[in-house]
Design a protein around this nucleic acid. Structure first.
Length: 806
DNA sequence: AGCACGCCGACT
DNA sequence: GTCGGCGTGCTC
């Protein structure tokens, strides 16, 4: 029996509608409608239509109400295959997100249709209403008038009088880019006949026919045909009207690679450690084993070459490969290398692409044209089939966790797909996350170590400079004598230096020196940040902007000025200390414009500057042979944040930035300035000793019951009224206490460090657990009940394994 | 989300 | 008496 019912997940992201609804498949669509296709369905009262996904078909349903039919099917082929459909469901379950949100997250933006609310006239209006509201049209886009209360009021009256109705239109935005192309419409002999018929002096026509004879069945872009023949478009038009050729619209893919410079193709020989790693992973690919490997390699140890080799193996086996990188803009070299090795088989997916480019890359993957995918977090959903290997470079990076719903971790999704495809997963890092390193310790992951740099250079020596005596001697400064003379030496030798200003958890704010007043955002309880570019104070959370005060609003003192160190201030100080040095400053302000990031790096790479001074963003991926000195101006700021991962992140940052020195044949040197020279993080960075850092940090995590010993979940509640959130969150806490395992630990509810944000109050409960059978279903239940149980404005979100705790 | 339904206060 | 405010429940 033909299934004629479809289970549809509708685009109404609420907990109450987070389930498949049953629809009739009308006869005309029975042959077409498949699971994984987007559909338009009527939903709710009135003429409301929404987009949805068919997630299954069935001949029967439990639902005994009246069924509505699917209005339209939006796709000819499923946009979500069976694997990704299952994955979306799993993700919705494990991240407490709406199924519909998960489905959209896996697809390019363009496939999210925009629904338009139109107002349509159904009965004659008075002359004045007609003109005032609709003019000469009989339809009106409601979104254009919805902010005008008078018009809205008028429209709702007319609706009540049944003069107008509201209609919802769903427009698919996905457009395929096409170019005009031509193809020959006659046979070789027929063209011979045509040649007899044209005038002797019609040279252009003659040439056109000769050209068409060479084409055979080929379809050639009109532009290209013009270029090769040198004939004008008029000639081709004439050819069309004579019936010599036909014009067709040919689908093309937008090329996102035009801007990425492709590095020189080079074959590198593997050292013995690399060889072991490659062979081991190759074996898992060939035998289709879903083993996870932790590829632990010091900075510059040639992890990329290992990736490329195992991708090649997957391709040789007729399989595909998926490679994730933390941020494309920071690792353009890697993309370049993959592309130079595998050419057109590579598709790239990252945030820098336009919606159109992203859609085209996605289609190339979907159709099996692209067999290797390189991309950032969301590329983990690339519709590749028959995956042979999945690679995650810099697996410890926080950017692999999405910090909005669905709050998935790409590592977990990668694991899921690795299991599904029976393909190995390779996690690469110089400073693995404690979670991954601990799993390797427990034997769940297989550890592969690259302990030597590929270029045989030793890791650069790291020197720790105690800033306390420096500041006592010279007063407030960002540069120790030691660092200054090292910079001097580089200038004289025409070598380059990189300076890191650690700004994590640190901002330039305005403070009154007399009364201590700090300028804060009126909407959010956080300090405003000084922006010299725009001469204003800005809130980094809500975007509030005001002018820089010259008198303290509290005590009227004029001694109100900025406090803290920004790259601007440091650049100025450096300019005074080393007047001859050419400095490039890199931070969020100088790289805000698209492409600026790469431009600045390119300038530095071309030795147009001696010193690159920047924030965290300079720590990764930078690979310039002429850099022999790395200085860290203030190693401390990240160490004492109220976040259990602060030490781990600092270790990673300092290790990464140290790795920028001495990449080629010149020896490198690293100088780290700190007010805490004895801190274990600083000391172990100096020793290049990740393993001891791991052991030390694991002990601390064990004592404090944090990951990897415990799992964490955060429940966040928000409401415009503080009393409402607090009440609801305390009730949730009680509910948790009663049901969950006694060994499970709760923190809170507490107001967030920034309790008020965008005029909402935030409270959070942190849950730490090891084994808790009931917790998951209880959390799902809390999500479900939230809307009906508490105030309607209460927002509850649940974040499994949150990355930031402040 | 968006809409209907229903229950209360303040108005022609 | 009724218009319109918003709290509540439902959407195959």
């Amino acid at each position: 029996m033909m299934a004629d019912l479809a289970q549809v997940v509708v685009d109404v992201p609420t907990m109450q509608t987070n389930q498949p609804y049953t629809y009739l498949i009308p006869d005309r669509l029975v042959e077409i409608a498949q699971a994984g296709m987007r559909v338009i369905v009527p939903f709710g009262s009135g003429h409301r239509e929404v987009q949805g996904f068919i997630v299954g078909k069935s001949p029967q349903t439990e639902y005994d109400g009246e069924l509505k039919p699917i209005s339209a099917v939006m796709d000819l082929n499923p946009v979500v295959n069976s694997e990704l459909l299952q994955l979306s469901h799993w993700m919705a379950e494990t991240t407490y997100a709406f199924w519909i949100t998960c489905l959209y997250t896996m697809l390019p933006n363009l496939l999210k249709a925009k629904s338009q609310r139109m107002v349509r006239i159904i009965d004659e209006l008075s002359e004045s209403d007609q003109m005032a509201l609709f003019g000469n049209q009989d339809e009106l886009d409601f979104s254009k008038v919805q902010h005008d209360p008078e018009t809205v009021h008028k429209l709702s009256q007319l609706q009540r009088d049944k003069k107008i109705e509201f209609v919802y239109q769903v427009n698919d935005r996905a457009r395929v880019k096409t170019v005009t192309a031509i193809k020959a419409s006659l046979s070789f002999e027929q063209y011979e006949d045509e040649l007899q018929g044209i005038a002797k002096n019609a040279k252009a026509q003659h040439q056109l026919i000769l050209y068409l004879q060479t084409l055979g069945d080929q379809v050639v872009a009109l532009k290209e045909a013009q270029a090769t023949t040198g004939l004008s478009s008029a000639t081709f038009n004439l050819g069309q009207s004579r019936g010599w050729l036909t014009k067709v619209q040919q689908e093309v893919y937008r090329d996102p690679f035009l801007q990425i410079s492709v590095a020189q193709k080079q074959t590198l020989t593997l050292n013995s450690e690399q060889k072991v790693a490659v062979d081991t992973i190759d074996q898992a690919i060939e035998q289709s084993i879903a083993q996870t490997f932790l590829l632990q390699g010091v900075t510059g140890s040639g992890k990329t070459e290992v990736y490329l080799r195992v991708i090649q193996t997957a391709l040789d086996q007729g399989k595909t490969a998926l490679m994730l990188v933390p941020e494309i803009s920071l690792t353009p070299q890697i993309v370049g290398r993959v592309r130079s090795r595998f050419g057109d088989q590579v598709a790239v997916l990252h945030s820098g692409l336009s919606n159109g480019e992203r859609y085209d890359e996605w289609r190339r993957i979907s159709r099996g044209v692209a067999k290797v995918v390189v991309g950032t977090r969301s590329a983990i959903f690339a519709p590749l089939e028959n995956i042979g290997v999945i690679i995650m470079d810099e697996e410890h990076e926080g950017s692999y966790k999405q910090d909005e719903s669905p709050r998935y971790h790409a590592r977990e999704v990668a694991k899921w797909r690795s299991d599904f495809h029976h393909a190995p997963l390779v996690l690469g890092s110089a400073t693995p996350s404690l979670e991954s390193r601990a799993r390797a310790e427990a034997g769940l992951y297989q550890r592969l170590v690259l302990s030597k740099r590929a270029n045989q250079q030793a890791l650069p020596p790291i020197e720790i400079v105690d800033m306390r005596p420096e500041v006592q001697k010279k007063g407030e400064t960002n540069f120790s004598q030691r660092l200054l003379s090292a910079l001097h030496a580089r200038l004289e030798r025409h070598e380059q230096s990189v300076l890191l200003l650690n700004r994590r958890g640190f901002s330039s704010f305005v403070m009154c020196r007399d009364c201590g007043y700090v300028l804060k955002c009126p909407n959010c309880d956080i300090s405003l940040t000084l922006h010299m570019d725009s001469h204003s104070m800005k809130c980094h959370y809500c975007g509030h902007e005001e002018s820089i005060p010259n008198r303290c609003p509290q005590c009227q003192s004029r001694r109100i000025s900025y406090y803290g160190t920004g790259t601007e201030k440091v650049t100025a100080e450096l300019g005074e200390l080393l007047p001859n040095a050419r400095i490039i400053r890199m931070d969020v302000d100088t790289t805000r414009r698209k492409g600026m990031h790469q431009k600045l790096l390119d300038r530095f790479g071309n030795h147009e500057a001696d010193i690159l001074l920047g924030t965290q963003m300079i720590a990764k991926g930078l690979d310039y042979p002429n850099v022999t000195l790395v200085g860290v101006l203030n190693a401390d700021t990240g160490l004492d944040l109220p976040d259990f991962r602060a030490a781990e992140r600092s270790f990673d940052l300092l290790t990464q930035v140290s790795g920028r020195a001495g990449r080629a044949n010149k020896a490198g040197q690293v100088i780290i300035q700190t007010f805490n020279p004895d801190n274990y993080v600083i000391q172990l960075v100096k020793e290049h000793d990740y393993e001891r850092f791991f052991a030390t940090e694991m002990n601390l995590r064990k004592l404090a019951a944090y990951p990897p010993y415990y799992y964490t979940v955060r429940i966040m509640g928000s409401h415009p009224d503080e009393k409402e959130v607090a009440k609801a969150m305390f009730e949730i806490r009680q509910q948790l206490d009663q049901v969950t395992d006694s060994r499970t630990i709760f923190l809170g509810p507490t107001p967030r460090a920034i309790a008020r944000l965008k005029n909402c109050y935030y409270y959070q409960i942190i849950i730490k657990y090891r084994l808790d059978q009931k917790l998951h279903s209880l959390l799902s239940q809390i999500m479900h009940e939230a809307q009906s149980k508490y105030s309607r404005d209460l927002q509850i979100s649940i974040d499994p394994d949150p990355q930031y705790f402040i």
